Amino acid sequence: MQKISPFLWFDNQVEEAIIFYVSIFKNAKVKKVARYGDAGPGPKGTVMSAWFELAGVEFTALNGGPKFKFNEAVSFVVRCEDQNELDELWERLSEGGEKGQRGWLKDKFGISWQIVPVVLAPMLTDLDAQKSQRVMQALLEMDKIDIAGLQRAYEGERAA
């Protein structure tokens, strides 16, 4: 068991959300589901909370009602190995949500995600300041991240 894990407070969409996330991520599974009983406070049989795993990270989700909403102050970074993985996650997670800039998106439940390639951090932290600045400039012009575009910027080539 992870010592620290994300806890997500939904209004009443936990069941829909975990089905959605588990369908998108490889190595994902629903671990446990607790349902309301006669004591409530939710309708008997509906999901109260659930524990699920995405790419080795355990999450807890609660149907807590409309008191709290998700916002961009907290997001999940997904590091992708290649453009195909990045494209798939970008499209699937943004279904019913909204696509942002520089790899950010908001899913249909309001959770913010950053879909980034694993090569981004090493490029942005390269000791050659010109390389890292070119990569940052290219990134600032992207919505969904284009790994080949970052690579061209890193190498000092003009955009295709």
Rank of each mutant, 00 (worst) to 15 (best):
G103L: 10
R102P: 05
R152E: 11
G65C: 05
V47K: 00
W51V: 13
M142T: 09
M123L: 09
G65V: 02
R35Y: 02
P117R: 04
R102W: 04
W90E: 01
W9M: 10
I147Q: 05
S112G: 04
V116M: 07
I18S: 02
R134W: 11
G103Q: 05
V30Q: 08
Q133F: 11
E98R: 13
R134G: 09
P41H: 11
P122D: 15
G42W: 04
W104N: 09
T60A: 15
G45R: 03
E85F: 06
K67C: 03
N12G: 14
E16P: 00
K69M: 03
K67T: 04
P43C: 03
I145T: 08
K29W: 05
Q133M: 08
F20S: 06
E157W: 11
V33E: 06
A55H: 14
P41C: 04
V57Q: 12
E95W: 02
K99F: 04
P43W: 03
L105P: 00
G45A: 02
A50T: 07
V74Q: 06
A61K: 03
R35G: 02
I111T: 00
A148R: 15
V47Q: 00
K144Y: 04
A55N: 13
M142Y: 14
A34N: 12
G103V: 06
G156M: 10
I18A: 01
K44F: 05
S5F: 15
E88Q: 14
A50E: 09
G42N: 05
G65D: 09
K26A: 12
T46K: 05
I24S: 00
W9P: 02
A28T: 08
P66K: 10
V116A: 06
I4H: 04
S23N: 08
A159V: 15
G37T: 02
A55D: 07
V57L: 15
P117K: 03
T46P: 01
P66S: 10
A121E: 15
A160G: 11
N71D: 10
A34K: 13
K3T: 14
L8N: 01
Q13F: 12
E81A: 14
G42S: 07
Y21T: 00
I4Q: 05
T46V: 05
Y21S: 02
Q151C: 12
I18V: 07
L54Q: 06
N12F: 10
Q133L: 10
V119E: 15
Q13K: 13
A159K: 11
V118A: 12
Q130P: 01
L89I: 01
F25T: 00
K32I: 08
E16G: 01
A61D: 02
I4V: 13
K69Q: 07
K31W: 12
Q101E: 14
K108E: 03
P43S: 09
N84P: 08
V119S: 15
S75C: 07
N84F: 08
Q130N: 06
K32N: 14
E155N: 11
D146N: 15
S5H: 15
L86E: 02
K32C: 08
G103Y: 13
L105W: 01
Y154M: 08
Q133Y: 13
K131I: 03
R158C: 13
F10P: 01
